[in-house]
Simulated scan of single mutants.
Amino acid sequence: MRKRIVIEMGVLSLMVALTTASVWAEPLSVQDREAITRLGSAQGRSENEITPLLDHVSKAGERGLPTESLLNKMREGLAKGVEPKRIDPVLRQMTSRLESAHEVLEEAKSRGLSEGNRQRAIETMAEALSRGTTVDEVRELSRLSQEGRHKATQEELAAGAKGLAVMKEGRIPSKDGTALVGEGIKQGYRSSELMDLSREVKRRGSDFEDGRASLQTLRDKVSKGERSDRLFRDDHSDSGGDRDRRDRGDRGGKGSRDDSDRDRSDRQEQSGSRDRSERIDRPDKVDRVERPERQDSRDRPERSDHSGRGRD
């Protein structure tokens, strides 16, 4: 009787494992394959050139990695007439980042973090790692997040890791940024609040660097439960408003505060200020810069090299 129970439990465990794997797996559908093959064909690419790229994305999905960002990169490259052999290394680099993100999130889950939106967490964590957050910093964030009563999720940890990367772009020391983000996760900050906090800290990076503002004071406010939308309310005074307008003017007078921050982040990424692993993704950045020329490329297919000759 006992032997029978053991066998039944083993079979049940196997079924659960297989079910979990099938839920996580995202192999490409026939429709996705056909749509991308048609897109490549419209750009003069043979099916033999496209199939290896599709197989790579499909295998990534079978390993439980999100495939939408990989598919979008394929569509973007093919639509611009980029050769498949140039798309391949970009896909491999993106897949490597997704795998690293998956591993560090699974490690955090094994230590007590809730899963949350797994696919979004992996994609956000992959971006965080590409922008300069290290695995050791993620582990420290994971440890700090579990010191409070709030039950943190993988998605919140990923948002915190991305927020830390944003702060570091504003020359905030890793130790101080990690402590601040970790406190925010402990206090139950949502993913959007963590990102708002990081953008505001980055925007005031010179103030913290020169001693006009204190990260310790900011952390104390967070530890007392103050929400991200109230942390910087004193800056709405006349002097703070003047400083905000001056900061926006220095960055080119973009519209909203968040838009201005994102614009500056884009410029920093394109200038090569990010780490070595991110710099090898430059062909991807070049393609993105050429996006406004998409209509011209379609109208004038003879300029397939995208050299830019004859542009205004």
Rank of each mutant, 00 (worst) to 15 (best):
R245E: 09
R288A: 12
P301H: 13
K186L: 02
R75Q: 10
E34P: 00
E209A: 07
V11F: 14
E156H: 04
G77P: 06
R311S: 15
G160D: 01
R227K: 08
V166C: 09
R199D: 07
T19C: 01
L98W: 03
G177W: 00
G64W: 12
R300A: 13
L141M: 03
V289P: 00
R139D: 10
K221I: 00
P173I: 03
D284P: 03
R111I: 10
V16A: 10
D244P: 07
M94G: 05
R111Q: 14
Q31G: 07
K186I: 02
K80E: 15
R131P: 09
E62A: 13
S130R: 08
A165R: 04
E302A: 14
G44I: 06
L197P: 06
S96N: 09
R203Q: 03
I7A: 14
A25R: 10
Q187E: 03
D32E: 11
D238C: 05
S130N: 10
R97Q: 05
G116F: 06
G253F: 06
E209P: 03
S277L: 14
S46T: 11
T20K: 09
N48L: 15
H306S: 11
P292Y: 06
D55M: 08
R251K: 09
V201S: 02
R212G: 00
E103Y: 03
G112H: 00
L91N: 09
A161M: 02
R2G: 15
D250M: 13
K151T: 02
R243H: 11
R219E: 00
